[in-house]
């Protein structure tokens, strides 16, 4: 299975950066004047290549905002986000789109597949959007659907699949251009426990076999426990290690 995935694809140059992601002092504010809210209050974070990181914290602590900011889905108010040696906060709209297309993959809580396209076509999409891709879109999609165990559902539309199946298609889509980093925003949040476990198994296998960097936002301590490391957010900041240990113990 691992042979199908090429970690060095899509312009990834090994050794160019020591860490997969470096985050320096990022802040994020919404609104203006009196109604201004600071959601991220100067966050620093370094994620090593091949690491599987869980971002935890209560609702409203800013963990999803952080994920959006470090994955290039959202902008930051200040600070730096360095993916693969490039500060993405300085990138223009088109360059940022290229990063989202080639260097990262995203798995959402609500799957967010395109409802009008089949499973196969949803997975092909990122490859098709990259004009310089070395992958054959159709072959690549078939390989990845094989990988997530859905080759029999290739021609089905999202509406014809269960939540677990949809999320597995979404994972296949996230892998399409063989990115270095996969982000997941509560990837099991909308699934029942069986399907949730299957999806987590898929993600951990992926990490083990391909050495991808995984960043997951989750509420679920069991998921955090399967990760190499967990960071805890509270009110727009990380808690320090001692607090984290405390928090981890109490949650067990």
């Amino acid at each position: 299975m691992a042979t199908a995935l090429n970690i060095y694809a899509a312009g990834f140059v090994p050794g160019a950066a020591p860490a997969a992601i470096e985050v320096h002092q990022i802040t994020k504010e919404y609104g203006e004047g009196d109604s201004r809210v600071q959601v991220l209050k100067g966050v620093d974070l370094t994620i090593a290549r091949g690491e599987m990181l869980a971002i935890m914290g209560p609702s409203g602590s800013g963990k999803s905002t952080l994920l959006g900011a470090i994955s290039g889905l959202d902008t930051v108010t200040s600070g730096q986000v360095i993916i693969n040696g490039t500060d993405i906060t300085r990138l223009g709209e088109n360059a940022l789109a290229r990063v989202r297309n080639r260097n990262i993959g995203f798995v959402f809580q609500t799957f967010n597949l395109i409802s009008t396209l089949t499973a196969q076509e949803n997975v092909e999409l990122p490859v098709l959007l990259d004009r310089k891709s070395s992958f054959n879109p159709s072959k690549r999609a078939q390989e990845l659907l094989d990988l997530v165990g859905l080759s029999h559902r290739r021609k089905h539309r999202p509406g014809q699949m269960s939540g677990g199946e949809q999320q597995r298609v979404a994972i296949a889509r996230a892998l399409a251009n063989d990115p270095e980093v996969i982000f997941g925003d509560e990837p099991t949040g909308n699934l029942d426990s069986t399907n949730g476990e299957a999806v987590m198994q898929l993600l951990t296998d992926l990490k083990e076999e391909t050495g991808k960097t995984l960043v997951l936002v989750t509420h679920d301590p069991r998921i955090a426990a399967q990760c190499d490391r967990a960071v805890y957010m509270h009110d727009g900041r990380f808690l320090d290690d001692a607090d984290v240990q405390q928090s981890m113990r109490s949650s067990r």
Binding site: E93, R100, N101, F108, I114, L125, D130
Partner: peptide, 16 residues
């Protein structure tokens, strides 16, 4: 808008 958001998340440019 959601569909457009998804397309952007997987790397589609505004022009595309």
């Amino acid at each position: 808008r959601r569909e457009i958001g998804v397309l952007k998340a997987v790397g589609a440019k505004r022009r595309t």
